[in-house]
Design a protein around this nucleic acid. Structure first.
Length: 686
RNA sequence: GCGCCCGUAGCUCAGCUGGAUAGAGCGUCGGCCUCCGGAGCCGAAGGCCGCAGGUUCGAAUCCUGCCGGGCGCGCCA
């Protein structure tokens, strides 16, 4: 951890600024950065540049004046003004490392914990939310990997988190599969159950879903069958509703199994059907009507609908200018340009998706005044209960944790839903809860598409003249059945890892080799899914995803395994236990740590390892997990370089040996934490 | 048409709320296992940071306008 030191430096610079220039505390922000190399310093601040204009002094002079006032102590060795105006801080290295290794006490932590935001309230993270009508694919994996990493990152910094997975069991997609079973395969509930027991059900539905889509296109009249099925599901009409229930529940169990393979799980499954049956919408509707946010449109195109005004700063400019070319579209036969409205309740009285989502969000934010009933659905990976909502009081378990009513909410949903998420926020504002709206975050990310090479592997060949062929990637499509199933990808990764592990460690038992392969496979997928910025479309390439080299999860694991090996060997060959080694540091001269011969590699490793807390803060602030991935990569690279250059077991100088070991001990601790935040474990061997 | 996103090395991408010399992986070429495990390390080649203006001590980063690409804008979800 480096942040306590940041706070300290900031505080002391503030005090000096107040003293020297009479600058009040919060007018100046004091950025803390990393100087390009250790010879320049451990922490650096360009604060003098910003002050240069207001103080009418050269940055270098300001930096010098601040540095002159800066006294050593409290973990800071000295402060220098660089010739170019940077203020550079040098850390008291020995104390810093010993504190982080727990050899000596870290001053101020007890206080910091006691005075910290003790009453932090719960944050809800909703992710995954796969339609329960087919197997999960790689697009869903990006969602879950990002969502779960967010959950872990929040947990790392002490924020209580509730993880929800929303199940759209009453939507068209489930209806489609019901239609497929009944109309194409002519099966009843028992028939569907038999198939579920005899096959990989989510895979079966994947294919069936594609078939149904095709089936609709051959005769548009068949769409009426879908509409009827959807209606029956929403109203609980037998037997359609029972079949739909069965399908949804079975497929959800498949999804849970898939996600569990990647160390991803949830506290609560919220079922859309329960939101309908418990009339959450009716309550939300009252509030929305009462506030005037949603009103009945009486004229025009949307007459008879309850609508919400979209406040889009679109600025209805003059569009009178239409080119001379005759393509001017007749914009407004009857009012095309005035305020836009979004339908919330259709003229036939049914609620749109947005409406249901608003009710759900009101509940998440603690504004609905209603609650679900709850039942145990399954076991979580740690053995505790996975809860699900229910609308039947008879099924309900009285004793359950409190759900919903969170201080803050993150909805992990891809960028294509940005518009709807914006409306959701707007609805909160409209009913007078601007603060809740402020604390609602749409964690958006770009979609996963397929590289042309991988689409070809899957047997998809776009006609050369088709649009698809010209695009930079091929879109995943559940409707077309085009996509890489999550479990297929995971299977391939596990299998490939097993080959590699077996080649390197033939003496291990098969069970052990499998265990290791799975850890490696998980690292590969999860790292792959977070290493891109969330604003970037991933053109998924199977060969790239299967790579265990370079910028990959296994590379990070490998670094930790190597580090662990050193301590194991230290114990085996020299009989030195890690605790004993660390204990001996207090009495070891710190020359090696301070860089004899101007060599700061050892210290650089320690300092970089310490940055994890800073990185996690940045990641949570920006929701950019690629930063975490890059940090882990850089740290592993730094260690690997150090590993080759600085031997430990064979180092003769005892003090050098100990400090190197200490640095590596801290490194592996921090990189292990980094991997934990990614949901990745460390194998015993690789 | 309007809104959001992307454009950096041959390819895939980093570049933190403007800051010290624009970096990594893959690929290419050349080295390194009597030495803690080579899923590794070291080195080389490879960049008008899409284009043009602007803001300032300083711009890959901020603003404007273009160009190219993606997505969104339904009484679908």
């Amino acid at each position: 951890m480096i942040l306590p030191l940041h706070h300290q430096v900031r505080g002391r610079v503030r005090a000096i600024l107040a003293e020297l220039y009479d600058l009040s505390d919060d007018t100046v922000n004091i950025p803390i950065e990393s100087p390009p190399n250790r010879a320049l310093g451990d922490l650096g601040s360009p604060v003098a540049f910003e002050l240069a204009r207001t103080l009418r002094k050269a940055p270098r002079v300001i930096a010098q004046e601040i540095a002159a006032r800066f006294t050593a102590g409290d973990g800071i060795a000295r402060v220098e003004a660089a010739p170019n105006g940077y203020l550079n801080v040098f850390i008291e290295r020995r104390a810093f490392l010993l504190q982080r290794l727990g050899v000596i006490e870290l001053p101020g932590t007890a206080v910091a914990q006691a005075t910290g935001p003790s009453a932090v309230q719960k944050t809800i993270v909703e992710h995954t939310a796969i339609n329960p009508n087919k197997a999960a694919h790689i697009g869903h994996l990006r969602n879950s990997a990002l969502g779960d990493t967010l959950v872990r990152a929040l947990g790392f910094r002490g924020t209580p988190v509730e993880v929800q997975n929303y199940i759209d069991d009453t939507g068209v997609q489930v209806a489609d599969v019901v239609v497929g079973f009944r109309e194409i395969e002519h099966r009843d509930l028992a028939g569907v159950q038999a198939i579920a027991d005899a096959t990989r059900f989510d895979y079966y539905c994947w294919d069936l879903y594609a078939k149904v889509t095709e089936w609709y296109t051959t005769d548009k009249a068949r769409l009426a069958i879908r509409a009827a099925a959807l209606h029956d599901i929403e109203h609980g009409v037998s037997p359609t509703a029972e079949i739909a229930n069965f399908i949804a529940e079975r497929v959800v169990r498949c999804h849970l199994k898939t996600m569990a393979r990647l160390n991803i799980d949830y506290h609560l499954l919220t079922w859309e059907g329960d939101i309908l049956r418990l009339k959450f919408w009716a309550r939300a509707f009252e509030v929305l009507k009462h506030s005037g946010a949603v009103y009945l449109q009486t004229e025009g195109r949307l007459a008879g609908c309850w609508v919400m005004k979209i406040d889009d700063p679109i600025a209805s400019d003059d569009d009178a200018e239409v080119g001379a070319d005759g393509t001017s579209n007749p914009a407004g036969a009857d009012g095309g340009e005035e305020d836009r409205e979004k339908v919330i309740v259709r003229s036939n009285g049914t609620v749109t998706y947005v409406g249901k989502d608003m009710a759900y969000q009101f509940w998440k934010s603690g504004l609905l005044g209603k609650d679900f009933f709850y039942r145990t659905f399954a076991r979580r990976m740690d053995g505790s209960q996975l809860w699900a909502t229910t609308s039947h009081e008879v099924d309900a378990e009285v004793a359950h944790p409190p759900f919903g009513a969170a201080l803050a909410t993150f909805n992990v949903i891809d960028v294509r839903q940005a518009y709807l998420q914006k409306l959701l926020k707007q609805a909160l504002v409209a009913v007078g809860h601007a603060d809740e709206a402020e604390r609602l975050t749409h964690f958006s990310y770009e979609m996963v598409a397929l590289s042309h090479a991988t689409a070809r592997d899957l047997g998809y060949a776009a006609p050369a003249d088709a649009d698809d062929a010209k695009r930079p990637f091929v879109e995943v499509s559940g409707r077309k059945g085009l996509g890489v199933k999550a479990d297929d990808l995971i299977d391939r990764l596990f299998a490939k890892a097993l080959v590699e592990v077996t080649r390197r460690n033939p003496e291990l038992s098969e069970a052990e080799r499998r265990r290791i392969s799975e850890l490696i496979g998980v690292a590969a997928v999860r790292y792959f899914m977070i290493k891109y910025s969330r604003t970037k479309v991933i053109a998924f390439d199977i060969d790239e995803a299967l790579s265990f080299e370079g910028e990959s999860g296994p590379y990070l694991q490998y670094a930790v395994v190597r580090a662990n090996n050193i301590f194991q060997k230290l114990q085996e060959r020299a009989g030195v236990s890690t605790p004993a080694l660390l204990a001996s540091l207090a009495a070891t001269p710190p020359d090696a740590l301070n860089g004899e011969d101007g060599d700061h590699e050892l210290w650089s490793l320690v300092l970089e390892a310490a940055r994890l807390d800073d990185v996690v803060e940045q990641v949570v602030r920006s929701l950019e997990f690629a930063v975490l991935a890059k940090y882990g990569l850089g740290l592993a690279q730094m260690f690997n370089g150090f590993y080759h250059k600085a031997p430990i077991l064979n180092e003769e100088r005892e003090d050098v040996k100990r400090w190197r070991a200490a640095a590596v001990a801290y490194f592996r601790q921090q990189l292990t934490h980094t991997l934990e935040i990614m949901g990745v474990g460390v194998p015993s061997r690789m």
